[in-house]
Simulated scan of single mutants.
Amino acid sequence: MEFRDLKTQYQTYKDEIDTAIQKVISNANFIGGNEVKELELQLSKYTGAKHTITCANGTEALSLVLMAWGIKEGDAVFLPDFTFFSTGEVVSFVGATPIFVDVDRNTFNIDTKKLEQAIIKTMEEGKLSPKVIIPVDLFGLPANYPEILKIAQKYNLLVLEDGAQGFGGSIDGKRACSFGDAATTSFFPAKPLGGYGDGGAIFTDDDNLAELLQSLKVHGKGSNKYDNVRIGVNSRLDTIQAAILQVKLKAFDKHEVTDVNRVASHYNERLKDVVEIPYIPEGYVSSFAQYTIKLKNKTERDNLQNKLKEENIPSMVYYVKPMHKQEAFENLEYIEEDFIVTNELCDTVLSLPMHPYLSEAEVDQVCKVIKEFMS
């Protein structure tokens, strides 16, 4: 059993993927080929964003936006404590200070009440200038953007949606990667829409931001790549990855989001009275980058994971350590009591096999082990 079954996905679309790759090789347009621009147009159509700017990976997508906004030393950027390291890393990378905020226990996403409290506290301390909120669409579920956007407007902050895991999710029909002033996603192979290597994209309706990002991602180019008008980086999506992603986006839109939600419903039916299952608020759709359950404590979680391993069933813990405890951020001062929920989740969450090609029989197999363990 695969945790995320990229092998079955490839076999399902082998002819289309092989043809797309061969076309790029035959044309030898490995950098900046037509497939890149075509993919950007298709991604804009899918998300509803006016502009899509592809780049080398999801981390650089975040970094590029912060660079374009001029975020720097002395600025405060607010983000969830329960997330992957890169969301905080990019803040420090541009010289700003990440302010970690505890999350909602039900959704795993940033707690909007605690977010506003953190903004007010930072303003009152007067050491940093609040500038940006980076909500994360964790495990495929969009963050609470209706409330986040109200808070951002109230305190004049920019919102950068980290949709690396949330691509394909939605709120009342509005798709992830279309919220806030800009949004990003990742095409890392295990993500909801993944390539066969690294890749990322930025989404925005801001014409000026889009133009600046196009420059920054290619060495700060002006009219051409040998006319360099600013300091930038080298962050391009390879043409082969774009060609692969075009095939995968078609499948993603046609059936994969629907299918992962079908798999989630199978899990829910079997586990709802056994463990704490994922919570999806009314009006929200998750793309289920992960299907994550909660156990009573760390011992129970670890023992269940070991039992699953004995039965050759893969599982993962996202995340074993909160952001505020990462050694890379040891220079920052935090009050441990501010992260009660995150600390609990790091000890109790467990992600089960989840992908569009998971059969009901395989779900039964996973749930059987869990039920036997919990009985």
Rank of each mutant, 00 (worst) to 15 (best):
Leu216Arg: 03
Asn29Gln: 15
Tyr145His: 06
Lys131Leu: 06
Asn261Glu: 09
Phe167Asp: 00
Glu161Ser: 08
Asn312Tyr: 13
Ile240Pro: 00
Gln9Ile: 11
Lys371Arg: 12
Leu149Lys: 11
Gly197Arg: 02
Ala143Thr: 04
Lys248Val: 05
Ala61Pro: 02
Asn27Ile: 06
Lys250Pro: 04
Asp181Pro: 02
Ile293Gln: 07
Ser26Pro: 03
Tyr334Arg: 12
Lys131Cys: 00
Gln153Lys: 15
Ser44Ile: 02
Asn34Gly: 09
Gln305Asp: 09
Gly168Cys: 08
Val274Ile: 15
Ala61Met: 03
Asp18Leu: 11
Val218Gln: 04
Ala210Lys: 01
Val24Met: 00
Glu327Ile: 07
Leu213Pro: 09
Glu211Met: 01
Glu276Cys: 06
Asp137Thr: 13
Asp238Tyr: 03
Glu310Ser: 14
Asn331Tyr: 13
Glu35Ser: 10
Asp181Asn: 15
Val260Gly: 02
Thr87Gln: 02
Leu157Lys: 10
Leu345Glu: 08
Gly95Lys: 01
Met123Phe: 03
Asn261Ile: 00
Glu16Ala: 15
Ala164Glu: 11
Asn343Met: 01
Val90Thr: 13
Glu269Ile: 01
Val317Leu: 07
Leu64Pro: 02
Gly140Trp: 06
Gly283Gln: 12
Asn343Ile: 04
Ser63Arg: 14
Ser235Pro: 06
Val77Met: 05
Leu212Pro: 01
His355Glu: 08
Glu211Asn: 11
Ala242Met: 04
Val94Asn: 10
Ile133Met: 10
Leu193Ile: 11
